[in-house]
């Protein structure tokens, strides 16, 4: 064992735990009593942003079962009586799957493309949650607040995404799968 064995191990564990911990933090932050107008309304969508952002580079560190647990936790913490528990989990899993299957359009491309991708997926997420909540409680829920949330989180994305990207930028494993053979000029392969 090398002299820096312990540090290297901690480093590796830290790297592996980082996406999950960040996601957990944002799930808890959803409930924080921030009284900033608009911003506090958009907090429930930030976990979806984290899922999207980390799925771009290191989806293997946000495994599906973890997303399931986090989504259910979010629903339990946030949900009112009668709201479906697990709809966020479904949304997270689908976001991850969509990102992983469309890596060629989302990884190593200009930021605007990523933003556009996030706009599409977040819209899908909002519509999914709205539909299931309305369907589950069988009430016509005004979609306007949900769309307002969506608009705010879209605006927040350029502020938050670089921060999260910086967290993983120094990651040596932040390279596309060699086996996929989809690396393009500008990307590095190991």
């Amino acid at each position: 064992m090398r002299a820096d064995g312990l540090l290297a191990m901690l480093d590796r564990w830290g790297r592996y735990a980082l996406p999950g911990t960040t996601l957990l933090f944002f799930v808890l932050l959803t409930l924080a009593p921030l009284r900033a107008p608009y911003l506090s309304g958009a907090l429930p969508l930030l976990p979806a942003l984290v899922v999207f952002q980390f799925s771009l580079a290191t989806p293997e560190r946000l495994p599906g079962p973890l997303l399931l647990v986090m989504g259910i936790l979010l629903d339990l913490l946030l949900g009112g009586p009668g709201a479906p528990v697990g709809v966020s989990a479904l949304g997270f899993v689908l976001i991850r799957a969509a990102v992983v299957n469309n890596r060629r359009y989302l990884v190593g491309v200009p930021f605007l493309f990523q933003w556009f991708g996030f706009c599409l997926l977040a819209l899908g997420f909002v519509v999914l949650v709205w539909f299931f909540t309305a369907f589950w409680t069988w009430t016509a829920i005004d979609p306007l607040p949900a769309l307002m949330q969506y608009a705010v989180v879209i605006v927040i994305y350029p502020l938050l995404a670089p921060l999260l990207a910086r967290v993983r930028a120094r990651d040596p494993l932040n390279v596309p799968d060699a086996s996929r053979g989809t690396a393009r000029p500008g990307e590095t392969t190991s």
Binding site: T30, L31, A32, P33, I141, A146, Q149
Partner: peptide, 15 residues
Amino acid sequence: RIVGDSVSAYVRGAL
């Protein structure tokens, strides 16, 4: 003390 908001597009409440 209110320690958490559970305010979203679907719920109005607090913890």
